[in-house]
Amino acid sequence: MEQPPCWQCNKKYTGLFCAHCNALQCPVDDYYSVFGMERKLSLDVQALQAKFYELSRLLHPDRFTRRSPLERQYSLEASSLLNKGYRVLRNPVQRAEYVLKKEGFDIGEQGTKDVPPELLEEVFELNMALEELKMGDQQARGAVEEARQRFAAMRDEIDRELEQLFQQWDEKHERATLQQIRGLLNRRRYIHNLVTEVENVATLSN
């Protein structure tokens, strides 16, 4: 995508700052673009942090106190994008959801309440045990803990699968891969919510 010329000196440039007059430009509303990175699903979180700090030094409003109102506004917008981008991109799940959205997928909350059919029986048993625990039956604790571990292990397994699919998409950019990732994310969200709920009940009934 062609960038418009610099607002200050009207020359061509690429990136966040004009190469000629060093004026900060209106940022493009895209996390990857603010970080100056290609849209990839696998990324090194350590390197992301380093980049985040480096760009913060350049873009933070503290650096623009004595600059023009327009540049101050751009700094506000750019660092807001940077901060949000860092929050989203450092988390694999949020990162994948962001990329799905950018690639035109609908990633609403639908489907997260429905139990995946293959888990029906296990979830039913877990809910029974949870109810008993809530009623004060401490004997149910063992079953609940066992189920928690099982579901947590499932979540870990999904995370490994996701990682592979991330690499696959980064290499080939096939839409079918994203489709798969979306399915996996829905399943993960359901299991993750389940684990969190179990943990909450377990602490509350302690």
């Binding site: 409003p61 506000l76 917008e77 660092s79 807001s80 901060n83 949000k84 860092y86 929050r87």
Partner: peptide, 9 residues
């Protein structure tokens, strides 16, 4: 969300 780095939007 709380504890979001500012500026944010």
């Amino acid at each position: 969300h709380r504890n979001s780095t500012i500026p944010t939007s």
